[in-house]
Design a protein around this nucleic acid. Structure first.
Lengths: 137, 137, 137, 137
DNA sequence: GTGGTCTAGACCACA
DNA sequence: GTGGTCTAGACCACG
Protein backbone atom coordinates (compact mmCIF):
# COMPACT_ATOMS: atom_id res chain seq x y z
CA UNK A 1 0.00 0.00 0.00
CA UNK A 2 1.37 3.36 -0.99
CA UNK A 3 0.51 6.59 0.74
CA UNK A 4 1.42 9.96 -0.57
CA UNK A 5 1.55 13.01 1.68
CA UNK A 6 1.45 16.45 0.12
CA UNK A 7 3.09 18.77 2.59
CA UNK A 8 2.32 21.94 0.71
CA UNK A 9 -1.37 21.37 0.07
CA UNK A 10 -2.27 23.00 3.36
CA UNK A 11 -4.59 20.12 4.18
CA UNK A 12 -3.79 18.69 7.60
CA UNK A 13 -1.45 15.76 7.19
CA UNK A 14 -3.36 13.44 9.45
CA UNK A 15 -6.52 14.07 7.42
CA UNK A 16 -4.69 13.29 4.20
CA UNK A 17 -3.77 9.96 5.73
CA UNK A 18 -7.35 9.36 6.86
CA UNK A 19 -8.63 10.05 3.37
CA UNK A 20 -6.10 7.78 1.77
CA UNK A 21 -6.91 4.88 4.04
CA UNK A 22 -10.57 5.41 3.28
CA UNK A 23 -9.76 5.54 -0.43
CA UNK A 24 -7.65 2.37 -0.21
CA UNK A 25 -10.52 0.65 1.57
CA UNK A 26 -13.02 1.95 -0.91
CA UNK A 27 -11.02 0.99 -3.96
CA UNK A 28 -10.48 -2.51 -2.67
CA UNK A 29 -6.75 -2.03 -2.34
CA UNK A 30 -7.25 -2.73 1.34
CA UNK A 31 -9.56 -5.62 2.18
CA UNK A 32 -11.80 -6.05 5.24
CA UNK A 33 -9.90 -7.71 8.07
CA UNK A 34 -6.57 -6.87 6.53
CA UNK A 35 -3.91 -5.22 8.67
CA UNK A 36 -2.86 -1.61 8.15
CA UNK A 37 0.82 -0.69 8.26
CA UNK A 38 1.88 -0.26 11.85
CA UNK A 39 2.42 3.22 13.13
CA UNK A 40 6.15 3.41 13.63
CA UNK A 41 7.36 2.13 10.23
CA UNK A 42 4.67 4.05 8.41
CA UNK A 43 5.62 7.27 10.20
CA UNK A 44 9.22 6.66 9.22
CA UNK A 45 8.35 5.94 5.60
CA UNK A 46 6.21 9.05 5.29
CA UNK A 47 8.65 11.17 7.30
CA UNK A 48 5.98 12.03 9.83
CA UNK A 49 5.90 12.19 13.56
CA UNK A 50 4.44 9.02 15.10
CA UNK A 51 1.88 11.18 16.87
CA UNK A 52 0.55 12.32 13.54
CA UNK A 53 0.06 8.79 12.22
CA UNK A 54 -1.46 7.75 15.53
CA UNK A 55 -3.85 10.66 15.30
CA UNK A 56 -4.96 9.57 11.83
CA UNK A 57 -5.55 6.00 13.02
CA UNK A 58 -7.44 7.24 16.06
CA UNK A 59 -9.62 9.31 13.78
CA UNK A 60 -10.24 6.29 11.55
CA UNK A 61 -11.17 4.19 14.53
CA UNK A 62 -13.59 6.79 15.80
CA UNK A 63 -15.10 6.86 12.31
CA UNK A 64 -15.56 3.10 12.49
CA UNK A 65 -13.37 2.48 9.46
CA UNK A 66 -10.70 0.51 11.26
CA UNK A 67 -10.38 -1.37 14.49
CA UNK A 68 -7.41 -1.07 16.77
CA UNK A 69 -6.35 -4.13 18.78
CA UNK A 70 -3.72 -2.95 21.25
CA UNK A 71 -0.56 -4.98 20.91
CA UNK A 72 -1.71 -6.51 17.64
CA UNK A 73 -2.24 -3.64 15.26
CA UNK A 74 -4.99 -1.97 13.31
CA UNK A 75 -7.37 -3.79 10.98
CA UNK A 76 -9.90 -2.72 8.41
CA UNK A 77 -13.52 -3.21 9.43
CA UNK A 78 -16.24 -4.60 7.21
CA UNK A 79 -18.93 -2.74 5.30
CA UNK A 80 -17.10 -0.45 3.02
CA UNK A 81 -18.39 -0.49 -0.51
CA UNK A 82 -15.88 0.29 -3.24
CA UNK A 83 -16.09 3.77 -4.66
CA UNK A 84 -18.28 4.13 -7.64
CA UNK A 85 -16.43 4.81 -10.82
CA UNK A 86 -18.11 8.20 -11.01
CA UNK A 87 -16.59 9.34 -7.73
CA UNK A 88 -13.11 8.10 -8.55
CA UNK A 89 -13.32 9.99 -11.78
CA UNK A 90 -14.30 13.14 -9.94
CA UNK A 91 -11.35 12.92 -7.58
CA UNK A 92 -8.99 12.43 -10.49
CA UNK A 93 -10.49 15.32 -12.43
CA UNK A 94 -9.78 17.63 -9.51
CA UNK A 95 -6.11 16.78 -9.65
CA UNK A 96 -5.96 17.06 -13.41
CA UNK A 97 -7.64 20.45 -13.37
CA UNK A 98 -5.12 21.72 -10.86
CA UNK A 99 -2.30 20.70 -13.17
CA UNK A 100 -3.98 22.32 -16.17
CA UNK A 101 -4.56 25.52 -14.24
CA UNK A 102 -0.93 25.56 -13.17
CA UNK A 103 0.16 25.04 -16.77
CA UNK A 104 -1.93 27.97 -17.94
CA UNK A 105 -0.74 30.00 -15.06
CA UNK A 106 2.86 29.33 -15.96
CA UNK A 107 2.11 29.94 -19.61
CA UNK A 108 3.23 26.47 -20.63
CA UNK A 109 1.71 25.61 -24.02
CA UNK A 110 -0.63 22.61 -24.24
CA UNK A 111 1.71 20.61 -26.40
CA UNK A 112 4.62 20.99 -24.00
CA UNK A 113 2.30 20.18 -21.11
CA UNK A 114 1.22 16.89 -22.70
CA UNK A 115 4.83 15.97 -23.44
CA UNK A 116 5.72 16.61 -19.83
CA UNK A 117 2.88 14.37 -18.67
CA UNK A 118 3.96 11.54 -20.91
CA UNK A 119 7.50 11.95 -19.67
CA UNK A 120 6.45 11.80 -16.01
CA UNK A 121 4.23 8.76 -16.61
CA UNK A 122 7.14 6.96 -18.21
CA UNK A 123 9.30 7.91 -15.28
CA UNK A 124 6.79 6.51 -12.80
CA UNK A 125 6.37 3.35 -14.84
CA UNK A 126 10.13 2.91 -14.84
CA UNK A 127 10.32 3.28 -11.06
CA UNK A 128 7.45 0.88 -10.56
CA UNK A 129 9.19 -1.82 -12.57
CA UNK A 130 12.40 -1.30 -10.72
CA UNK A 131 10.56 -1.78 -7.45
CA UNK A 132 8.93 -4.96 -8.62
CA UNK A 133 12.26 -6.44 -9.64
CA UNK A 134 13.65 -5.42 -6.29
CA UNK A 135 10.90 -7.31 -4.48
CA UNK A 136 11.32 -10.43 -6.59
CA UNK A 137 14.86 -10.87 -5.37
CA UNK B 1 -17.62 35.06 -11.15
CA UNK B 2 -18.65 32.14 -9.02
CA UNK B 3 -16.57 30.62 -6.28
CA UNK B 4 -17.31 27.41 -4.50
CA UNK B 5 -15.93 26.68 -1.05
CA UNK B 6 -15.77 23.16 0.32
CA UNK B 7 -15.87 23.48 4.08
CA UNK B 8 -15.40 19.77 4.74
CA UNK B 9 -12.30 19.23 2.65
CA UNK B 10 -9.90 20.26 5.39
CA UNK B 11 -8.00 22.34 2.87
CA UNK B 12 -7.70 25.90 4.18
CA UNK B 13 -10.53 27.99 2.86
CA UNK B 14 -8.29 30.85 1.83
CA UNK B 15 -6.16 28.48 -0.27
CA UNK B 16 -9.26 27.15 -1.99
CA UNK B 17 -10.05 30.71 -2.92
CA UNK B 18 -6.50 31.30 -4.14
CA UNK B 19 -6.73 28.26 -6.41
CA UNK B 20 -10.09 29.32 -7.76
CA UNK B 21 -8.90 32.79 -8.61
CA UNK B 22 -5.92 31.27 -10.38
CA UNK B 23 -8.26 28.95 -12.23
CA UNK B 24 -10.51 31.86 -13.20
CA UNK B 25 -7.47 33.69 -14.52
CA UNK B 26 -6.34 30.62 -16.44
CA UNK B 27 -9.77 29.98 -17.92
CA UNK B 28 -10.08 33.58 -19.04
CA UNK B 29 -13.08 34.10 -16.81
CA UNK B 30 -11.00 36.86 -15.27
CA UNK B 31 -9.01 39.07 -17.59
CA UNK B 32 -5.85 41.08 -16.92
CA UNK B 33 -6.67 44.46 -15.44
CA UNK B 34 -10.14 43.36 -14.45
CA UNK B 35 -11.38 43.91 -10.91
CA UNK B 36 -11.88 40.99 -8.56
CA UNK B 37 -14.95 40.93 -6.34
CA UNK B 38 -14.48 43.26 -3.38
CA UNK B 39 -13.54 41.60 -0.14
CA UNK B 40 -16.63 42.26 1.94
CA UNK B 41 -19.37 41.36 -0.52
CA UNK B 42 -17.47 38.23 -1.51
CA UNK B 43 -16.99 37.24 2.10
CA UNK B 44 -20.68 37.69 2.72
CA UNK B 45 -21.62 35.70 -0.34
CA UNK B 46 -19.33 32.82 0.61
CA UNK B 47 -20.27 33.04 4.30
CA UNK B 48 -16.67 33.70 5.26
CA UNK B 49 -15.03 36.22 7.50
CA UNK B 50 -13.65 39.21 5.63
CA UNK B 51 -10.16 38.36 6.79
CA UNK B 52 -10.26 34.97 5.16
CA UNK B 53 -10.94 36.53 1.79
CA UNK B 54 -8.41 39.27 2.51
CA UNK B 55 -5.80 36.62 3.28
CA UNK B 56 -6.47 34.87 -0.01
CA UNK B 57 -6.11 38.15 -1.86
CA UNK B 58 -2.94 38.98 0.06
CA UNK B 59 -1.51 35.60 -0.92
CA UNK B 60 -2.44 36.20 -4.55
CA UNK B 61 -0.76 39.58 -4.42
CA UNK B 62 2.42 38.14 -2.97
CA UNK B 63 2.32 35.57 -5.77
CA UNK B 64 2.15 38.39 -8.25
CA UNK B 65 -1.22 37.27 -9.61
CA UNK B 66 -3.22 40.29 -8.55
CA UNK B 67 -2.57 43.85 -7.52
CA UNK B 68 -4.28 45.45 -4.57
CA UNK B 69 -4.96 49.18 -4.51
CA UNK B 70 -6.20 50.18 -1.03
CA UNK B 71 -9.40 52.14 -1.25
CA UNK B 72 -9.91 51.08 -4.87
CA UNK B 73 -9.98 47.33 -5.09
CA UNK B 74 -8.01 44.32 -6.32
CA UNK B 75 -7.16 43.78 -9.95
CA UNK B 76 -5.74 40.95 -12.01
CA UNK B 77 -2.19 41.73 -13.07
CA UNK B 78 -1.01 41.77 -16.64
CA UNK B 79 2.16 39.74 -16.64
CA UNK B 80 2.37 37.49 -13.66
CA UNK B 81 4.88 34.69 -13.18
CA UNK B 82 8.13 36.17 -14.44
CA UNK B 83 9.68 32.88 -13.35
CA UNK B 84 12.56 31.21 -15.10
CA UNK B 85 11.63 28.32 -17.30
CA UNK B 86 13.41 25.83 -15.06
CA UNK B 87 11.34 26.82 -12.05
CA UNK B 88 8.08 26.87 -13.97
CA UNK B 89 8.82 23.38 -15.21
CA UNK B 90 9.50 22.20 -11.69
CA UNK B 91 6.26 23.63 -10.33
CA UNK B 92 4.29 22.08 -13.14
CA UNK B 93 5.91 18.69 -12.69
CA UNK B 94 4.83 18.67 -9.07
CA UNK B 95 1.21 19.15 -10.08
CA UNK B 96 1.45 16.54 -12.81
CA UNK B 97 2.97 14.00 -10.47
CA UNK B 98 0.14 14.49 -8.03
CA UNK B 99 -2.37 13.72 -10.73
CA UNK B 100 -0.45 10.64 -11.87
CA UNK B 101 -0.19 9.36 -8.31
CA UNK B 102 -3.90 9.89 -7.84
CA UNK B 103 -4.64 8.01 -11.06
CA UNK B 104 -2.50 5.10 -9.96
CA UNK B 105 -4.13 5.22 -6.58
CA UNK B 106 -7.59 5.02 -8.06
CA UNK B 107 -6.42 2.32 -10.44
CA UNK B 108 -7.27 4.33 -13.51
CA UNK B 109 -5.35 2.94 -16.49
CA UNK B 110 -2.89 5.22 -18.26
CA UNK B 111 -4.90 5.34 -21.45
CA UNK B 112 -8.05 6.44 -19.66
CA UNK B 113 -6.03 8.98 -17.68
CA UNK B 114 -4.67 10.59 -20.83
CA UNK B 115 -8.13 10.71 -22.36
CA UNK B 116 -9.43 12.45 -19.27
CA UNK B 117 -6.64 15.02 -19.46
CA UNK B 118 -7.37 15.79 -23.10
CA UNK B 119 -11.03 16.12 -22.24
CA UNK B 120 -10.37 18.58 -19.43
CA UNK B 121 -8.00 20.63 -21.53
CA UNK B 122 -10.65 20.89 -24.21
CA UNK B 123 -13.13 21.94 -21.58
CA UNK B 124 -10.86 24.73 -20.36
CA UNK B 125 -10.18 25.84 -23.90
CA UNK B 126 -13.89 25.95 -24.57
CA UNK B 127 -14.55 28.04 -21.48
CA UNK B 128 -11.78 30.45 -22.37
CA UNK B 129 -13.20 31.02 -25.82
CA UNK B 130 -16.69 31.48 -24.44
CA UNK B 131 -15.37 34.07 -22.01
CA UNK B 132 -13.55 35.94 -24.74
CA UNK B 133 -16.69 36.17 -26.80
CA UNK B 134 -18.62 37.27 -23.78
CA UNK B 135 -16.18 40.09 -23.09
CA UNK B 136 -16.22 41.28 -26.67
CA UNK B 137 -19.90 42.08 -26.47
CA UNK C 1 2.20 74.78 16.60
CA UNK C 2 4.13 71.82 15.31
CA UNK C 3 2.77 68.31 15.16
CA UNK C 4 4.87 65.31 14.42
CA UNK C 5 3.31 62.08 13.17
CA UNK C 6 5.29 58.89 13.42
CA UNK C 7 3.93 56.59 10.74
CA UNK C 8 5.96 53.59 11.79
CA UNK C 9 5.24 53.60 15.50
CA UNK C 10 2.14 51.48 14.99
CA UNK C 11 0.16 53.82 17.19
CA UNK C 12 -3.01 54.95 15.40
CA UNK C 13 -2.33 58.25 13.70
CA UNK C 14 -5.47 59.94 14.94
CA UNK C 15 -4.52 59.04 18.51
CA UNK C 16 -1.07 60.50 18.03
CA UNK C 17 -2.72 63.72 17.00
CA UNK C 18 -5.07 63.61 19.99
CA UNK C 19 -2.14 63.15 22.35
CA UNK C 20 -0.19 65.97 20.79
CA UNK C 21 -3.06 68.41 21.04
CA UNK C 22 -3.49 67.38 24.66
CA UNK C 23 0.23 67.84 25.25
CA UNK C 24 0.23 71.25 23.55
CA UNK C 25 -2.68 72.28 25.72
CA UNK C 26 -1.03 70.92 28.82
CA UNK C 27 2.32 72.53 28.14
CA UNK C 28 0.73 75.89 27.54
CA UNK C 29 1.76 75.99 23.90
CA UNK C 30 -1.93 76.16 23.15
CA UNK C 31 -3.96 78.54 25.30
CA UNK C 32 -7.62 78.24 26.32
CA UNK C 33 -9.88 79.81 23.74
CA UNK C 34 -7.18 79.70 21.10
CA UNK C 35 -8.01 78.25 17.68
CA UNK C 36 -6.59 74.94 16.52
CA UNK C 37 -5.31 74.62 12.97
CA UNK C 38 -8.22 73.92 10.67
CA UNK C 39 -8.65 70.43 9.35
CA UNK C 40 -7.84 70.79 5.70
CA UNK C 41 -4.50 72.65 5.91
CA UNK C 42 -3.40 70.53 8.85
CA UNK C 43 -4.18 67.34 6.96
CA UNK C 44 -2.19 68.63 4.03
CA UNK C 45 0.76 69.60 6.20
CA UNK C 46 0.84 66.25 7.96
CA UNK C 47 0.14 64.32 4.75
CA UNK C 48 -2.95 62.76 6.26
CA UNK C 49 -6.42 62.17 4.99
CA UNK C 50 -8.83 64.86 6.15
CA UNK C 51 -10.99 62.14 7.69
CA UNK C 52 -8.16 61.18 9.96
CA UNK C 53 -7.68 64.71 11.29
CA UNK C 54 -11.43 65.11 11.62
CA UNK C 55 -11.53 61.90 13.63
CA UNK C 56 -8.86 63.21 15.99
CA UNK C 57 -10.75 66.48 16.49
CA UNK C 58 -14.00 64.61 17.05
CA UNK C 59 -12.27 62.49 19.66
CA UNK C 60 -10.89 65.62 21.35
CA UNK C 61 -14.31 67.20 21.37
CA UNK C 62 -15.89 64.11 22.90
CA UNK C 63 -13.13 64.22 25.53
CA UNK C 64 -14.07 67.81 26.30
CA UNK C 65 -10.63 69.13 25.40
CA UNK C 66 -11.73 71.25 22.47
CA UNK C 67 -14.94 72.75 21.24
CA UNK C 68 -16.02 72.66 17.63
CA UNK C 69 -18.03 75.55 16.26
CA UNK C 70 -19.22 74.51 12.81
CA UNK C 71 -18.23 77.06 10.22
CA UNK C 72 -15.83 78.78 12.61
CA UNK C 73 -13.31 76.19 13.63
CA UNK C 74 -12.14 74.33 16.73
CA UNK C 75 -11.08 76.02 19.93
CA UNK C 76 -9.37 74.89 23.08
CA UNK C 77 -11.61 74.66 26.12
CA UNK C 78 -10.73 75.87 29.62
CA UNK C 79 -9.59 73.86 32.60
CA UNK C 80 -6.45 72.17 31.48
CA UNK C 81 -3.66 72.39 33.97
CA UNK C 82 -0.15 72.22 32.55
CA UNK C 83 1.63 68.90 32.89
CA UNK C 84 3.67 68.51 35.97
CA UNK C 85 7.37 68.49 35.36
CA UNK C 86 7.55 64.93 36.58
CA UNK C 87 5.23 63.66 33.87
CA UNK C 88 6.93 65.58 31.08
CA UNK C 89 10.20 64.08 32.21
CA UNK C 90 8.71 60.61 32.07
CA UNK C 91 7.47 61.07 28.51
CA UNK C 92 10.86 62.30 27.43
CA UNK C 93 12.65 59.45 29.16
CA UNK C 94 10.59 56.96 27.16
CA UNK C 95 11.79 58.49 23.92
CA UNK C 96 15.38 58.68 25.10
CA UNK C 97 15.39 55.08 26.18
CA UNK C 98 14.14 53.96 22.80
CA UNK C 99 17.04 55.76 21.15
CA UNK C 100 19.53 54.23 23.57
CA UNK C 101 18.12 50.75 23.00
CA UNK C 102 18.35 51.24 19.27
CA UNK C 103 21.97 52.38 19.60
CA UNK C 104 22.86 49.29 21.60
CA UNK C 105 20.97 47.14 19.20
CA UNK C 106 22.87 48.58 16.26
CA UNK C 107 26.10 48.33 18.21
CA UNK C 108 26.80 52.02 17.98
CA UNK C 109 29.27 53.00 20.71
CA UNK C 110 28.18 55.55 23.32
CA UNK C 111 30.61 58.20 22.18
CA UNK C 112 29.41 58.05 18.58
CA UNK C 113 25.82 58.08 19.82
CA UNK C 114 26.34 61.28 21.78
CA UNK C 115 28.05 62.92 18.83
CA UNK C 116 25.11 62.03 16.64
CA UNK C 117 22.70 63.55 19.15
CA UNK C 118 24.64 66.81 19.30
CA UNK C 119 24.73 66.89 15.54
CA UNK C 120 20.97 66.43 15.23
CA UNK C 121 20.26 69.02 17.90
CA UNK C 122 22.38 71.52 15.99
CA UNK C 123 20.53 70.63 12.82
CA UNK C 124 17.15 71.24 14.47
CA UNK C 125 18.35 74.51 15.94
CA UNK C 126 19.50 75.62 12.54
CA UNK C 127 16.11 74.82 11.00
CA UNK C 128 14.29 76.59 13.78
CA UNK C 129 16.26 79.78 13.21
CA UNK C 130 15.66 79.61 9.49
CA UNK C 131 11.92 79.36 10.14
CA UNK C 132 11.94 82.33 12.46
CA UNK C 133 13.70 84.47 9.89
CA UNK C 134 11.23 83.33 7.32
CA UNK C 135 8.31 84.45 9.45
CA UNK C 136 9.89 87.82 10.21
CA UNK C 137 9.86 88.69 6.53
CA UNK D 1 12.73 38.71 32.81
CA UNK D 2 9.95 41.17 33.35
CA UNK D 3 7.82 42.68 30.65
CA UNK D 4 5.40 45.50 31.09
CA UNK D 5 2.51 46.06 28.70
CA UNK D 6 0.72 49.38 28.49
CA UNK D 7 -2.77 48.60 27.25
CA UNK D 8 -3.84 52.23 27.00
CA UNK D 9 -0.98 53.55 24.92
CA UNK D 10 -2.58 52.60 21.62
CA UNK D 11 0.72 51.16 20.46
CA UNK D 12 0.19 47.59 19.31
CA UNK D 13 0.85 45.21 22.15
CA UNK D 14 3.00 42.90 20.08
CA UNK D 15 5.27 45.82 19.11
CA UNK D 16 5.64 46.83 22.73
CA UNK D 17 6.83 43.31 23.37
CA UNK D 18 9.23 43.46 20.44
CA UNK D 19 10.76 46.65 21.80
CA UNK D 20 11.11 45.22 25.27
CA UNK D 21 12.85 42.11 24.05
CA UNK D 22 15.24 44.31 22.07
CA UNK D 23 15.78 46.40 25.21
CA UNK D 24 16.44 43.27 27.27
CA UNK D 25 18.97 42.17 24.68
CA UNK D 26 20.60 45.60 24.66
CA UNK D 27 20.77 45.83 28.43
CA UNK D 28 22.31 42.38 28.70
CA UNK D 29 19.34 41.09 30.63
CA UNK D 30 19.04 38.55 27.85
CA UNK D 31 22.24 37.01 26.54
CA UNK D 32 22.99 35.50 23.13
CA UNK D 33 21.89 31.87 22.98
CA UNK D 34 19.65 32.27 25.98
CA UNK D 35 16.04 31.09 25.83
CA UNK D 36 13.21 33.58 25.83
CA UNK D 37 10.13 32.89 27.94
CA UNK D 38 7.89 30.33 26.21
CA UNK D 39 4.91 31.76 24.39
CA UNK D 40 2.09 30.32 26.47
CA UNK D 41 3.33 31.04 29.99
CA UNK D 42 4.36 34.54 28.93
CA UNK D 43 0.97 35.17 27.34
CA UNK D 44 -0.72 34.03 30.51
CA UNK D 45 1.48 36.19 32.69
CA UNK D 46 0.88 39.28 30.57
CA UNK D 47 -2.83 38.46 30.13
CA UNK D 48 -2.44 38.30 26.37
CA UNK D 49 -3.58 35.87 23.76
CA UNK D 50 -0.89 33.39 22.77
CA UNK D 51 -0.96 34.67 19.22
CA UNK D 52 -0.06 38.16 20.28
CA UNK D 53 3.12 36.91 21.90
CA UNK D 54 3.72 34.58 18.97
CA UNK D 55 3.42 37.50 16.59
CA UNK D 56 5.96 39.50 18.56
CA UNK D 57 8.37 36.55 18.47
CA UNK D 58 7.75 36.06 14.75
CA UNK D 59 8.57 39.71 14.17
CA UNK D 60 11.74 39.39 16.22
CA UNK D 61 12.72 36.34 14.22
CA UNK D 62 12.17 38.13 10.93
CA UNK D 63 14.32 40.97 12.28
CA UNK D 64 17.05 38.45 12.98
CA UNK D 65 17.03 39.15 16.72
CA UNK D 66 15.89 35.73 17.87
CA UNK D 67 15.74 32.23 16.47
CA UNK D 68 12.70 30.03 16.84
CA UNK D 69 13.05 26.25 17.02
CA UNK D 70 9.58 24.65 16.85
CA UNK D 71 9.04 22.23 19.67
CA UNK D 72 12.07 23.60 21.52
CA UNK D 73 11.62 27.31 22.09
CA UNK D 74 12.94 30.71 21.06
CA UNK D 75 16.51 31.82 21.59
CA UNK D 76 18.41 35.07 21.33
CA UNK D 77 20.68 35.03 18.30
CA UNK D 78 24.39 35.63 18.42
CA UNK D 79 25.08 38.19 15.73
CA UNK D 80 22.00 40.06 14.77
CA UNK D 81 21.86 43.23 12.72
CA UNK D 82 24.42 42.67 9.99
CA UNK D 83 23.34 46.05 8.63
CA UNK D 84 25.62 48.41 6.81
CA UNK D 85 26.86 51.33 8.82
CA UNK D 86 24.93 53.79 6.66
CA UNK D 87 21.63 52.09 7.37
CA UNK D 88 22.32 51.70 11.07
CA UNK D 89 23.09 55.39 11.27
CA UNK D 90 19.85 56.25 9.52
CA UNK D 91 17.76 54.10 11.86
CA UNK D 92 19.44 55.59 14.87
CA UNK D 93 18.95 59.15 13.64
CA UNK D 94 15.22 58.52 13.37
CA UNK D 95 15.06 57.55 17.02
CA UNK D 96 17.19 60.46 18.10
CA UNK D 97 15.08 62.93 16.17
CA UNK D 98 11.96 61.65 17.86
CA UNK D 99 13.50 62.26 21.25
CA UNK D 100 14.64 65.76 20.26
CA UNK D 101 11.21 66.63 18.93
CA UNK D 102 9.62 65.39 22.14
CA UNK D 103 12.04 67.48 24.20
CA UNK D 104 11.23 70.57 22.20
CA UNK D 105 7.56 69.76 22.47
CA UNK D 106 7.76 69.51 26.23
CA UNK D 107 9.89 72.66 26.33
CA UNK D 108 12.79 70.89 27.98
CA UNK D 109 15.94 72.96 27.43
CA UNK D 110 18.79 71.37 25.48
CA UNK D 111 21.10 71.29 28.46
CA UNK D 112 18.59 69.44 30.62
CA UNK D 113 17.89 67.08 27.72
CA UNK D 114 21.55 66.14 27.40
CA UNK D 115 21.84 65.57 31.11
CA UNK D 116 18.84 63.27 30.99
CA UNK D 117 20.39 61.29 28.15
CA UNK D 118 23.64 60.85 30.02
CA UNK D 119 21.70 59.75 33.07
CA UNK D 120 19.74 57.12 31.12
CA UNK D 121 22.87 55.80 29.43
CA UNK D 122 24.49 55.39 32.82
CA UNK D 123 21.40 53.59 34.03
CA UNK D 124 21.54 51.12 31.14
CA UNK D 125 25.23 50.59 31.65
CA UNK D 126 24.60 49.91 35.31
CA UNK D 127 21.90 47.34 34.52
CA UNK D 128 24.11 45.60 32.00
CA UNK D 129 26.91 45.24 34.51
CA UNK D 130 24.54 43.96 37.15
CA UNK D 131 23.21 41.36 34.72
CA UNK D 132 26.67 40.22 33.80
CA UNK D 133 27.56 39.67 37.44
CA UNK D 134 24.29 37.86 37.97
CA UNK D 135 25.01 35.48 35.10
CA UNK D 136 28.51 34.74 36.32
CA UNK D 137 27.21 33.28 39.56
C1' DG E 1 -17.44 52.31 0.18
C1' DT E 2 -12.08 50.19 -0.34
C1' DG E 3 -8.05 47.21 1.57
C1' DG E 4 -5.03 46.52 5.91
C1' DT E 5 -3.91 45.40 10.85
C1' DC E 6 -4.29 43.82 15.67
C1' DT E 7 -6.03 40.66 18.85
C1' DA E 8 -8.19 36.22 19.83
C1' DG E 9 -9.65 31.20 19.88
C1' DA E 10 -9.09 26.72 18.14
C1' DC E 11 -6.41 23.45 15.96
C1' DC E 12 -2.09 21.27 13.84
C1' DA E 13 2.60 19.09 13.84
C1' DC E 14 6.21 17.93 16.52
C1' DA E 15 9.59 16.58 20.85
C1' DG F 1 5.22 20.58 26.67
C1' DT F 2 7.05 23.57 22.14
C1' DG F 3 6.10 26.94 18.03
C1' DG F 4 2.92 27.62 13.80
C1' DT F 5 -1.50 28.31 11.19
C1' DC F 6 -6.39 29.25 10.05
C1' DT F 7 -10.45 31.65 10.97
C1' DA F 8 -12.79 35.50 13.12
C1' DG F 9 -14.16 40.18 15.10
C1' DA F 10 -13.12 44.87 15.71
C1' DC F 11 -10.79 48.76 14.35
C1' DC F 12 -7.76 51.85 11.30
C1' DA F 13 -6.60 54.84 7.21
C1' DC F 14 -8.11 56.28 3.07
C1' DG F 15 -11.37 57.72 -1.17
Amino acid sequence: MLFQINFKSGMPVYLQLVDQVKAAAASGELKPGEALPSIRPLAEELRLNRNTVAKAYAELESLGVIESLPGKGCFLKQNHSPLRKEIRRKLLIEEIDQAIVMAHHLQVPGREFLELIQQRMDSFEHKRRANEEHKEK
